[in-house]
Write a protein that binds this DNA or RNA. Structure first.
Lengths: 323, 323
DNA sequence: TTGAAAGCGCTAACAT
DNA sequence: ATGTTAGCGCTTTCAA
């Protein structure tokens, strides 16, 4: 390995000059700088980031922990994070917990040690997880707590329900996500509030059990949905809706003719499938950018949780209920 | 920050003993070890990985560079990599170049400095990129060169063409991917070979220009496809096929009735859309596992490029050509 | 079994 | 403008 010492010897200067010439060129005479640069190039010198990090106390990178890299929801957030990171000259390391809550503390611990700050986009990460990060700053996404950023699920639920009610639906089922998901709890609470507000109009909401936030999870929800008297379904996310719609079709239940479906997230999947899904969206890249900025330069600590707006995108999976 | 010194003072031992008790417990008396452990726990000590890495010369993590996190192809590879890494007690950092070839050398350089080895799954990474990794070992995916792992695209092309020819197609268009993609070049070469072999049977292949490997890219290919006399299309990947099918539908061209489509990759997207796509698949998790193992414990250097088999998955996007 | 001490490669005072 | 030096936190000889 080529070190500053080798470059210094070749260039005929001290190691301090090498360091300066490379990281603070203005502090060095032009001739010297050029000598150092050509020596470094000739030897193929590359700075050891571990050493620089140890010395500087910072690594120049931030981390992002997500539950599932294959879910476009997190890919979109990651893009936002990467944009802001690039502006700041920081690297981004993404780690995937593969929907395994057990593995998260370990992954987070390592990630926190190797970076200057971590964005936790895993819905199951909680207090215990924060502790594991030690002194490394943490910003959580779709969670509550200090330095949290979340989609305004209550508003999203309200828009979804208002849309369905306007179409004439009165019996709505919710196909819920992971038990420990804060976002799922938000959706459930908001649905309960809708029932309170609209109960007089005959609105009924059926909250269905815990399903994996995957295509398979959506498919496995088909029994519960079919057994209910609901004319419309709201799902935890796009991916679940896709699975559910497939399983429904296999049973001869047509969407939206026999059953309307509204999903959350509105990732690109929602517009891809047939029928295209009516879905509640957040600007995820903006969410990612915000989370990253919050990590780099925390704004007002007075506002611990920042909510991002949601908007209903009406497509082809919702219609007036039959008869 | 709590360091070994703090723990040593609290436990009444030297820093060397702290280090041993924590990383090599068998070298320390049980009583001492327990004292150190409780002191560390009480103080909330967490080892500084930068320092350990500097000293040990290794970071305990590997890196994975992909062009697009939102493409399920790479998510599947990442899962395979993560599986093997976990077995080896290594962390995995994923970095997304966002389909920007310009950014790759910089990202790779940083990734290489922060890890013990890098898997390059970006189709555009080349010789120059390898150099940037310096002494850090690199394994490339879907590229040629030393320590490379790739899908057997020639076989995949052969299967796709055989399927289409058997259905009665003679005019096939190829909707190609990024110019610098090795995998794209492989597909084109293999298609040319098919024409040589089957030209006598009347097979004609139209190679279409460079398109982005995204949904948008597929949509933008619709003009060229519609203008051709092809009755079947092979696309660079699933995502492109999805975009193309959408754009075709918007023009009233039905798949597979008016045009057959075969895609590459067979990610979960292929089975999700309507019609479900006939696609050529590789076991991507196995590919990822193999790449990671190749990085950790390189096997026979005699075989520089390892090919993984492809299999055609026939679904609903291919049919007999009309009239 | 434990401790003292060297040093991984780098940067930032401080001195010249 | 450049050099000398201390030291980031850790592991690992080498001695005791």
């Amino acid at each position: 390995m080529v070190t500053v010492h080798d470059v210094a010897r070749t260039a005929g200067v001290s190691i301090a000059t090498v360091s300066r010439a490379l990281s603070n060129p203005s502090m060095v005479a032009t001739a010297t700088r050029e000598r150092v640069e050509s020596a470094a190039a000739a030897l193929g010198y590359v700075p050891n980031l571990q050493a620089a990090a140890l010395r500087a106390g910072r690594t120049g990178a931030i981390g992002l922990l997500v539950p599932d890299l294959a879910n476009p929801y997190f890919a979109a957030i990651a893009q936002g994070v990467a944009e802001t990171a690039r502006e700041q000259g920081l690297g981004v390391f993404v780690v995937d917990s593969q929907e395994d809550p057990e593995a998260e503390p370990g992954l987070l611990r390592r990630l926190a040690r190797q970076t200057d700050g971590v964005i936790l986009a895993s819905p199951r990460a909680v207090e215990a997880d924060r502790a594991v990060a030690g002194t490394t700053p943490v910003v959580v996404v779709n969670q509550t707590g200090p330095r949290a950023v979340a989609a305004d699920f209550a508003s999203g639920v309200h828009q979804a329900v208002a849309h369905l009610v306007a179409l004439g639906h009165r019996q709505i089922a919710y196909v819920g996500g992971p038990a420990a998901s804060w976002g799922d709890a938000q959706r459930r609470t908001a649905l309960a509030a809708e029932v309170r507000d609209r109960g007089a109009d005959g609105l009924e909401v059926l909250l269905l059990g815990v399903f994996a936030p995957t295509v398979d999870g959506g498919e496995s929800a088909v029994d519960a949905v079919a057994a209910s008297s609901a004319t419309a379904v709201v799902t935890y996310n796009d991916v679940v809706a896709v699975g559910l719609v497939r399983a429904l079709r296999a049973r001869g239940v047509r969407v939206p003719d026999d059953l309307s479906v509204v999903s959350f997230d509105d990732t690109y999947l929602a517009g891809l499938v047939t029928p295209a899904l009516t879905s509640v969206r957040t600007d995820l890249r903006a969410l990612g950018r915000f989370a990253a900025r919050q990590l780099v330069e925390p704004t007002d600590a007075a506002e611990p949780l920042t909510l991002h707006p949601m908007h209903l995108e009406v497509r082809d999976s919702t219609a007036t209920p039959r008869a």
